[in-house]
Design a protein around this nucleic acid. Structure first.
Lengths: 212, 212
DNA sequence: TAGATTGTTAATCGATTAACAATC
DNA sequence: TAGATTGTTAATCGATTAACAATC
């Protein structure tokens, strides 16, 4: 089988297309073209057309792409048609913020459990979700067939939480702790590291100010 | 002048090197080699050597790089020697989490002001920082020569906050609202969009589960 | 029909990887 | 000296961009 895997940069751009499509849908537009997308998103039309091809959509010369159909293709492509259940571990500042974020349902994510190890937090409500004891994670994940785990604990606990998740049958980990995690091959990992973005911003700023 | 600009992927990897260097420094190691880094960070030695070259460090065959010196080169490269003052606007869940994050000082960032437009929040303390009225931002930024702005407001207010920041002389914006911002050329922008990472994770998970 | 827009094939660009000489 | 590791030059790979034919 040939490798026609979607490039990572394409996957990252797709949520932006989806967002724009929702807007078009709300305005009851039927068609959207690469020229329109290009104006709104500051991308080159050719790049957008290339990206579109990966979703499997077929466009119509002179009109563009049918909004509703393209949206569905994208939802299917991402697997965001129905939100997947997820557990979040670590109810500190960032964890709480994620628990309170309303947009996840439309992003394929449904946080159905919040866990912590701090007795002061266990039993409390955060954005309407009861914080449970981390020791309960294993059983619950197995019973509920939870496949996604979100790690928002301090760095030094991240690996052990990841191990717990793997043991509980979780197959995808979204990790906000800045540590390399050791995971079996069949568990996928997405690292989220703010220091990357901050580094880029810092370098840009240095250049901008340095070149005055 | 030739374009020997540092590649973006290199810049993003540099904070991970820095983190490892701090660890080595704490263990009082004097030298670090690409082989060691490679084992810890799961990167290819050749890639690490290429990255190192951009920091300006000169290594020593058979020994590697001097830990202290490399750390300094990296700090200088990123401009993280002294933290730059920043203002944060939008004290909701994410904003509060960022205000409480301890690691920023070592990442070149010093959040010296928190702003919001909600009267209930103005005057309150979040992680020891007083929330100020957004209308104060302009004057304060100018007087304090603040150059970095962090936007954690809801999407629909992001552009107007950005305009305020630009007007106040801010030169770099770290934007957590998922909207394209229109900014003058001399203001740099770093977008932080969680939906990108979530999209990547979703696609990975879909493949992993689909290919069982 | 004319023209806008898609989709495909080829060219370019940039980052990663490989090969290897230099060096302590 | 021998060997590990750096640094440089060249090759490869993958993503973006360009060119252009197809089509409604």
């Amino acid at each position: 089988m040939k490798n026609l895997q979607t490039p990572l940069p394409t996957i990252k751009r797709i949520p932006a297309y989806l967002k724009l499509l929702n807007e078009f849908e709300n305005n009851e537009e039927e068609w959207i073209s690469t020229t329109m997308i290009s104006e709104r998103l500051n991308l080159k039309p050719i790049q957008i057309r290339k990206d579109m091809a990966f979703t499997g959509i077929i466009g119509q010369p002179k009109k563009g792409y049918p909004v509703k159909e393209l949206k569905n293709k994208i939802l299917t492509f991402l697997g965001w048609n129905n939100a997947t259940d997820a557990f979040l571990v670590g109810c500190g500042g960032l964890g709480s913020a994620l628990l309170g974020y309303k947009g996840f349902e439309t992003h394929g994510l449904n946080i159905v459990g919040a866990f912590d190890s701090n007795p002061d937090k266990i039993g409390s409500l955060i954005h309407g979700k009861t914080v449970m004891d981390i020791s309960k994670l294993g059983d619950l994940a197995k019973r509920m067939f939870v496949k996604i785990g979100i790690i928002t604990v301090p760095e030094k606990y991240a690996q052990q939480i990841a191990d717990l998740m793997v043991e509980a049958g979780i197959k995808a980990i979204w990790n906000f702790a800045p540590v390399k995690l050791n995971l079996p091959n069949d568990v996928c990992l997405q690292m989220e590291d703010l220091s990357e973005g901050l580094a880029v911003l810092s370098v840009k700023l240095k250049h901008a100010i340095g070149e005055e």
